[in-house]
Design a protein around this nucleic acid. Sequence first.
DNA 1: CCCTCTTATTCGCATCGTGCGAATAACTAA
DNA 2: TTAGTTATTCGCACGATGCGAATAAGAGGG
Lengths: 245, 245
Amino acid sequence: MHEDAFLAAYDPTPYGRLALTVDAVLLGLLEGRPAALLLKRDEPPGAGCWALPGGFVRVDETLDAAAERVLREKAGLAGLHMEQLYTFGALDRDPRMRIVSVAYLALLPEHVFAAAARNGAGLLPAPIDVPWAGEAGGPVAVLPPAGSAESGPLRLAFDHADILALAMLRLRGKLDYSEVGFALLPERFTLRQLQDVHEAILGTALNKPAFRRRMLDRGWLEPTGEREAGTSFRPPELYRFRKPR
Amino acid sequence: MHEDAFLAAYDPTPYGRLALTVDAVLLGLLEGRPAALLLKRDEPPGAGCWALPGGFVRVDETLDAAAERVLREKAGLAGLHMEQLYTFGALDRDPRMRIVSVAYLALLPEHVFAAAARNGAGLLPAPIDVPWAGEAGGPVAVLPPAGSAESGPLRLAFDHADILALAMLRLRGKLDYSEVGFALLPERFTLRQLQDVHEAILGTALNKPAFRRRMLDRGWLEPTGEREAGTSFRPPELYRFRKPR
DNA sequence: CCCTCTTATTCGCATCGTGCGAATAACTAA
DNA sequence: TTAGTTATTCGCACGATGCGAATAAGAGGG
């Protein structure tokens, strides 16, 4: 009723334009630290700053489809685990016009992450420093990767630092009761690798036997019977993630 | 760069119109069951269906502000705990045009909930039946309140049943590690009332001593030293929610 | 083939959170 | 003062977890 009448009489023009975008946090691990793929902005606003890959939502595509398209067009990737994170709607997010952005989070296995950073699309894999413990939340710093010409923490465009911070918070929160951690690993992995992933995200050391037991008790791990090759010591067993039914 | 060039050349017209709304899940308890405030739609689409209170996001207001405005305009309420839930962007959510909606969740203390249902704005307090256990998720049914002319489960407009279902899922998930449960209680309350709230949301009975101990150990409860009046038996102590530092 | 080195994997134990039935306390009403 | 009802506390069992120590296992050198 209210809605209906309102909508029938609705003329968007007097309210001005409002645009909708998606921004993607493409998260992976770089040398054992969480890192995100960023694009450098050459023009104002935010020239010289780094930004999350993003794009406008088309009128004929869903939000999820827009996020997948951004992933494909900006990083050349497809078929990854993506989830909606939050929708950012501050008035001055973008100085040019009112833009509301739906943030998505994608997790890239280390190999995929490194490949995306090298595929020529200009994506910079930037380590993220999370200065808060546990799930306290707060701002994060984005560092230049080793060998980068940048010095000091990277300046991020718009509110993208907030988006990254929320992504890290959400990831920490979901890590140990959900299966997101596996999205950062290759198809077959060792328990040590799984623990490394958790420690990188949580930013804290974990007790090995306890972690091992907990993960195995979850029922998500299927031993492959194979072992990692190329070690100069006892090779660990390789596991596979098995979806719980 | 990509974004910038894209934006500079951006003309929204060829993409058609895309509108942004907020929808509010106004949740409370009705006779010990979770319930939501709904508005009846008189005109198509969805005429005869029930809908969540909602409204368009204005170009000069944030999403949070739009949600608060909806709360105020549609329910005559202000100053409540509101949090963003999820953003719904299916193509055919609304048959008239492409509308993306940011869903918000507000929790109303029983007294406020009942008052809002009576204030003449046409809000129907409808109990929600959650047929799934734990955090399995799935659809929910919305029932007519006692004394209503409706019969059988209510038909909801658009994807509002999905929004309600997600709200219940999110609420269950956050209930026992966050302080949201207190938002459904008056300022002073007994432990039994707190437990009733939890049981209503979770849809399951809880062990009294364990619940009590857990809540007290959280450090969120401050005894007032007063006791509930009007009982015909030993009156329980009244507690107050104290924000943890 | 045996020995050493290193890490994987398992054990044993203390501790904490929690479920639960029973016991105790406290207030009302008669 | 006593019965009735609920609040509040106790005692115990059990599962999950943290953690150091012990054991197992494979690589590589002699």
